[in-house]
Design a binder for these strands. Structure first.
Lengths: 141, 141
DNA sequence: TTGCTCCTCACGTCACGTGAGGTGGC
DNA sequence: TTGCTCCTCACGTCACGTGAGGTGGC
C-alpha cells in the first residue's frame, strides 16, 4: 500500500511515516514512480514504533529492538547489541517512575477539577498543590 | 539563593531554570551583579513545573495553572482563563491513556527481558510483540 | 484538463543539551 | 592572581508540524 493508506489505517500522519523511515525504523520499497510501497505488515510495525516512542524509547534503541520483534520470531537476537538488555532494563525502570509521576499528577488534576467544579477555589489550590508536585519523591534517582 | 544552589537542591540543571524563566514559568529577582536571586519558595515551584512538564502539559498551560497553586491559596482563579478547566480535562484524559500505554509497554519490556534472561528468544519476541504494541487499543481516540 | 496523491526540500517548534566567550565576588 | 559561579549568545537535537513547489496516475 502507499503512504496515504498506511497513514489512514494507522492514524499516523504521512509526514511521521517519512520521518520514521529517515530514522531507519521502516524501509518501504519504492514503486516505479518513486512512491513508497508498504507491505501489510507495516501496520503492525508502525503500531510497535508508536508504542515504543510513546513510552519514551529513543529511535536508536527502537531500531535495535525491532528486528527482535519480527515474525517469524526467530533467533535474530544474535544481531542485537550485547548491551540491549541493560539499556532496556534502564528504560523499564524509567517507565516505572514515569507511571508513578503521571498517576500522581492525574490524581492531582482530577482533584483540582473536582474542587473547581464544587466552586471551592481554596480547596482546589490546596489539594492540587499537595499532589501535583513531588517529581522528587516519585521519580528521583 | 542563586541559580547554582537552586539547581543543586532541585536537581534541575541551571540551564533548564533559565529556560523556564524564558518561558515565563519563574521570574527571579536580580541582584546588583545581575545574578538571579531565587526565594526559598522557588524549590517548590520548580518541582511543580517539573511534575507538570513530565505529565506532558505544555509550558503555556502551566503558566496559567501555576498562579492557582500559589500560597496563600486565595482566589486567583478569577484570573484563570475560562477554558482552563476544559483544557485540564482534556489533559487528564490524555494522561489516563498515556498511563495505560506505558503500563502495557512496561509489562512487555519486562516480559521480553525475562525471556531474554531465560535464553528463550522465541518466547521473548512473541511476548514482546504481543504486548508492546497497541497504542491504538490503549490510547486511540 | 481536473483533482488527488505523492515527492523532496526546508524552515518552525518545543523541551531540552552543549559549548563559547566574558564578567563578578571571595 | 586563582578558582568558582554566574552571565548571555548561539547552535545542536529529537520528535515532531507545516508549508512551498513540483510530479505522477486516473
Amino acid at each position: 500500500m502507499r503512504i496515504g493508506e498506511l497513514a489512514r489505517r494507522t492514524e499516523v500522519p504521512a509526514r511521521l511515516l517519512r520521518y520514521y523511515e529517515d530514522r531507519g525504523l521502516i524501509s518501504p520499497e519504492r514503486g516505479p514512480s518513486g512512491y513508497r510501497d508498504y507491505p501489510e505488515s507495516a501496520i503492525n510495525r508502525v503500531n510497535q514504533i508508536r508504542g515504543l516512542l510513546e513510552s519514551g524509547l529513543p529511535a536508536e534503541i527502537i531500531r535495535d529492538v525491532l528486528p527482535c520483534l519480527e515474525s517469524p520470531c526467530t533467533l535474530q537476537l544474535r544481531d542485537a547489541p550485547p548491551d540491549l538488555a541493560a539499556r532496556l532494563e534502564v528504560h523499564r525502570d524509567r517507565i516505572d517512575r514515569r507511571i508513578a509521576c503521571l498517576s500522581r499528577n492525574r490524581d492531582a488534576i482530577a482533584a483540582y477539577l473536582a474542587s473547581l467544579r464544587a466552586g471551592d477555589p481554596g480547596t482546589a489550590a490546596a489539594s492540587a498543590a499537595a499532589g501535583m508536585v513531588d517529581v522528587q519523591s516519585a521519580a528521583a534517582g
